[in-house]
Amino acid sequence: MNMRVIGGWLLVVLALAAVPVALPSAFYLGIATHALIFAIFALSLNILIGHAGMSSLGHAVYLGVPAYAVAWLTVQAGWQPVPTVIVALLMGTALSALFGILALRASGLGFLMITLALGQVMWGAAYRWVGLTGGDNGIRLPARPALLGFDLSSALSFYVLVSIVLLIALCSLWQFDRSAFGACLRGTRDQPRRMSMLGHNVWLIRWAAFITAGFWGSVAGVLYCFDYQFVSPQALSLPQSAEALLMVVLGGAGTLAGPVVGAIIITVIKTVVSSYVDRWYSLLGLTFIVVVSVMPRGLVPGIASWLRGKRA
């Protein structure tokens, strides 16, 4: 590990630690926590978009289903937090394994449409199956539970937990990126036919990537439920999937920092703007168009190449 890498990680840890110092009020800390949870979610989607080169428009499934699982198991079944979290993560991951088999029957646009349709199935189920999900009213979590003796009820303690999970996610996705498997995955993105000629099982590599993305999405989903203490069909909706896609593309697909930057920007805009105007969907739509037209490669690669150009 060279000095720059260590410096980079130190900077991330310092930035995460600086937020509660700079923004001590529970309100701002809450917004920062939302942003970090969506950063984890965007990182998970980036495995598909950036590394595997497959655009998914149904990723909200892995946010919403574990969130529903946490809420339902806690409220209706009265489970303890630890088994609840484990089962919710398993459910989200297992669902990604199943949906992966279906979605990977196609590639490119077909993949995108199938993920969209599967996402709508789950949304429709959450919306109409009132007996299980409470329909449009959703399920409310009475309180944030204590996890392994760690009290999460205060804004600061929950922020610390989310930061630690984000750091773990960043570390493992960074290792994922550098691993042989990461290289294989990029190979299937750029040259699928060559990869399969070299003896790699392209389908299996993509499926593994889909499940990895589903797992990290589920992690974000569990945190999402603890964060808002509420889950409704909105967590499974197409705008939710699209927002995550926008975060990844805005920050820069295929980079480690991009989805985090994109998630922070979108969450801040959303929170700040929706408190002033109620035309958030128009603004979101406009952001889509501007991002694609002005910076198709995203902020992080754009700024990086601009800096390199200056130095040269």
Binding site: L57, L112, A242, Y281, V291, V292, S293
Partner: peptide
């Protein structure tokens, strides 16, 4: 995809 989705939101 992103642009048409953006248009549909608007």
């Amino acid at each position: 995809v992103l642009v048409t989705l953006g248009v549909s939101f608007i």
